[in-house]
Amino acid sequence: MLSYTRQTEWIDRRGLILWIAFYTGGLGGGLYLVSVFFNSLWGMFISWLIIAVIKGGAHLLYLGKPQRFWRIVSRPQSSWLARGFIFVILFVIFGAVQLMISYWLPGTAAEVAFKVLTGISALAVAVYTGFVLNTVKAVPFWNSSLLPLLFVLCGVLGGFGISVIMALNGGNIDLAAAEAGSRWLLIANALLIAIYLWRAAKRETTGKQSVMEQIRGSNAPIFWMGIVIMGIIIPLVIAFTGYAVAELPSALLVFGVACEVVGGLALRYCVLKAGAYSPLVARAE
């Protein structure tokens, strides 16, 4: 209370479930958008499963009163959590209809319409967790307009990663295009993380404290190993080696994608873990 107090509810103990839910929301939404780009029905189906089963299930598991989950839609006018819940429901409904139409009635106008609707919902699912956090004024580290963008970019990056694996397994995806997408997004993601931390460090002393916690504090091993080395450097090295050598062993590509997933998980973990409140007792102006 007298020094910086880290938030614990959304990352410690059962909070870890929410960490998974936040990550899978971004990953599922990103994968759907990438799958629509490649017109991969399998990709769309997997993204639907990720959001409907893993993300939805994790949220329900985390709630103190899961049987009352339907009440969450009550206040979309002010609560990003309520909006997010509505986005997830819309994605699950539109996605299910779109998958059925794409399977049984491909090429119809209805398919295009539902792909657009599901795509918008997928983007909303990927982006809303960023808004859930950035509207918390009490935690300066989260109070950034870059956070939703960072979460979406990270989700789309994960989507490209999974599409690379699907391409290797004979999915209807252009491997070279998926690799190129990963490459550019990795660079953009790395830049955005750097800008985010730089700006957070300038946001009150508590924001700086959170950044220090990432770089030199107890979060440092996860930040450097998870985000920087596994999430950025290794995938970048593999991506640019593939660009230079033309063809890489499948195992190396899969390893690169696994590193990307670990990086995405580490990013969400560090963001949640480093969220800290200013000391309660402060001098009034």
Partner: peptide, 22 residues
């Protein structure tokens, strides 16, 4: 009777004055 236990309010309170009862 309406609370679902999402703990968003616990997170949002700048004064950390809310408690989740488990």
């Amino acid at each position: 009777d309406k609370c679902v236990g999402c703990r968003y309010c616990v997170i949002a309170c700048p004064y950390q004055n809310r408690t989740f009862v488990s």
